[in-house]
Design a protein around this nucleic acid. Sequence first.
DNA 1: ACGCATCCATTTGTTGGACAAATGGATAGC
DNA 2: GCTATCCATTTGTCCAACAAATGGATGCGT
Lengths: 243, 243
Amino acid sequence: MSEELGIKRQADSGAGETIRPSTASAVDDLVANIRALISDQGLKVGDNLPTERELCERFQASRNTVREAMRILKAYGIVSVRPKVGATIIDDRMERALDLFAFNTLEVSRSTFSDIQGFRTLLEVASVEELFERITADDVADLQRANDEMADAGSAVEASEADFRFHTRLIEVLGNKAILDVYKIMKPVILKIMVRGKTRRTFSTATHAEHSAIIEALSTRDRIAYQYRMKCHLEAGFPHFDD
Amino acid sequence: MSEELGIKRQADSGAGETIRPSTASAVDDLVANIRALISDQGLKVGDNLPTERELCERFQASRNTVREAMRILKAYGIVSVRPKVGATIIDDRMERALDLFAFNTLEVSRSTFSDIQGFRTLLEVASVEELFERITADDVADLQRANDEMADAGSAVEASEADFRFHTRLIEVLGNKAILDVYKIMKPVILKIMVRGKTRRTFSTATHAEHSAIIEALSTRDRIAYQYRMKCHLEAGFPHFDD
DNA sequence: ACGCATCCATTTGTTGGACAAATGGATAGC
DNA sequence: GCTATCCATTTGTCCAACAAATGGATGCGT
């Protein structure tokens, strides 16, 4: 009985388009077909997909089905759709990924906190060799600036933004785009961690002082001090997560 | 003229539902409204959203609009929709992210290769302290198994899968979900790197020997040897990327 | 009373058609 | 040659209908 599920959909196209049969929904099939279309025709960023109605004919689907498939591709950051212009291939996957994790960032559990800070320790403490090899006076000046902006911030949210900017700037020094991208993706969670258990006052005193000590270690090229200061700084939040 | 754009949509619901006015499309508004609904009502994983038709009434939108919005939430891995049951809140965002980057993985440039391997060096070499603190005999046995499966693999693709499994198993030892998730997201790129410049024979000889040396260092708890062997192993691919 | 197959109401999945809105390009007027 | 206007094309939204799936109710036999 269920073998007849997709008969209408996989009816021979006759037009020469290969339509992969499947047990999935028509929309999912369509997404797969459009992906295949992009690959097969070697479409690149900037190229346009066929119009919705062309896709309807080509893959024997209704326009609503095509539209739902396009919504998925849009959500994936693979195409940008504009009236009259049509669907243009883009590559916004990083931004989409950021959006993905920005959504409804659940309350941060102690285990999540522990994992994220462990990760950051690896990125910011264990990378000390590479960091000291690359860091310049300009980098240090930028860090100083971000730190001061944090102290001057008007609200805890603004302060945590500056706090995050400080750490991002540090990661930037490594000159590794993969690491920087991952760090940015974690931004929403890291911000939650930063805000938690901190008032505006904490940012402008304790956190600012910790950052200053880190900058000091960077200036004097004291690796041991840097590692110690950064490790303490990252662990400072632990007391606030004692569920 | 264009001020009248959303009049129908933002017409007072009267039913007490707050509908945020906007200049965005009806679908995007709906996504925002549903997100707000989830937040406001404190819906958790496992809870159900209202039915499509209820959402139509509640937010004064047509069912197609609601469905396109739901497609977006599904693409984000936030809900799972089943006939009769409805839309259940889930959290598959990590898996979605994986899908995101699995699509059409572009050719790996030397700079990307360098960044990814740098990242892996940080994760697999610089984490040595944590690693040695946690690793057990069972872990080592699993690593051994993955390594042997790689040698026995029938194709380069199978071998690289086993290769990746070896490294993933190592990361698992750290017991840090955030790091493991990120590693999994990078899988498509890492696989590309692994396959490149390696034949099946390379996997069963050179790569297998390198892994064995790493396992040996883990067994004898020789940190220096581990770091050296792993570093060399990760750098072994560099000659193949000389554009 | 219990297990089982059957039926039914509800919900999502897909289709077709219609009209509104946006917009790039053609056209007409100066 | 330049600008304003119009038009054809394409996406955006809505409506109505039916198909498919499925959880739960119903009824039956033992």
